[in-house]
């Protein structure tokens, strides 16, 4: 995809955060264009989730800036992020186990009746509609999500991010618990959302999936950015080399975490 004449949707610039002594994210810069999928890759503990949690407002960065549509954004809370059209599927799913799918779908943004009370039926109807697109076999609308399977729970988390018409979608290992059929549906969905011009950060350990879907990859290691590359320009083996030993191939742009 040709990005040269487009304005970036998100620019993460020199963002850092540390927990105690651990530099979980260390001076990382990544950007994302409309209709683009950027795959975030790296070992366990590389700092991928932490980086996107800064973007989604659940962590406050120690330093660095975030620009949205070219303008400086202040994202202090998850609510701020949502106001910018950033929706997140968290690795931990972030579901309240004791309430049902619809309640989770609308958590924090409930539909209400003209009297201001919860419109549970309307929420359930919306939940049935969006879940139907995602996981047609899903029937357990009355049960708390603790009664759902891992994959079903993941579907609920995905549905929540989709329902609110995100412009920027963050998916932290969205298909880790899904069966092959559901994974394919989510992957098809990502391609469809991409067509609609939504920008997507996709974190996944499945390098094949990432190469199928992502336009670019950004590789992290020890909190640092190893490098970024167009998926068309590098091979899977080269990407693995970036992840495992931090070796940046010629066609990629090296970051501060590169091994050389």
């Amino acid at each position: 995809m040709d990005m040269t004449n487009k304005k970036p949707l998100v620019e993460i610039k020199n963002v850092s955060i540390s927990f105690g002594g651990v530099h979980a994210v260390d001076d990382v810069s990544v950007d994302l264009y409309p209709g683009e999928v950027v795959g975030l890759l790296g070992h366990n503990g590389a700092g991928k989730s932490t980086l996107i949690k800064i973007l989604s407002g659940s962590y406050k960065s120690d330093g660095g800036e975030i620009y949205i549509d070219g303008e400086k954004a202040t994202i202090k809370t998850p609510r701020d992020a949502k106001a910018y059209g950033i929706e997140t599927i968290y690795q931990t799913l972030a579901l309240a186990d004791n309430v049902d799918a619809a309640a989770n779908l609308f958590l924090g943004r409930e539909l209400t009746t003209p009297l201001g009370t919860l419109d549970d039926v309307a929420m359930e109807a919306a939940a049935r509609e969006v879940m139907g697109r995602l996981n047609p076999n899903f029937k357990k609308f009355k049960e708390p999500v603790s009664a759902l399977s891992g994959g079903q729970r993941q579907s609920v988390a995905i549905a929540r991010a989709l329902y609110f018409n995100a412009r920027i979608l963050i998916m932290d290992e969205p298909t880790a618990a899904l069966g092959p059929q559901e994974t394919k549906m989510v992957n098809d969905l990502i391609i469809e959302l991409k067509k609609q011009g939504i920008g997507i950060f996709l974190i996944s350990h499945d390098i094949h999936d990432v190469f199928d879907m992502a336009d670019r990859v950004a590789v992290m290691n020890n909190g640092k950015l190893v490098g970024t590359a167009n998926t068309a320009d590098i091979t899977k083996d080269e990407a693995l080399g970036m992840i495992i030993i931090g070796k940046v191939p010629e066609n990629a742009i090296a970051g501060s975490g590169a091994s050389q």
């Binding site: 998850p78 931990t92 972030a94 958590l107 924090g108």
Partner: peptide
Amino acid sequence: EAAELSGI
């Protein structure tokens, strides 16, 4: 945590 991440 989920409640907090939902902006509550």
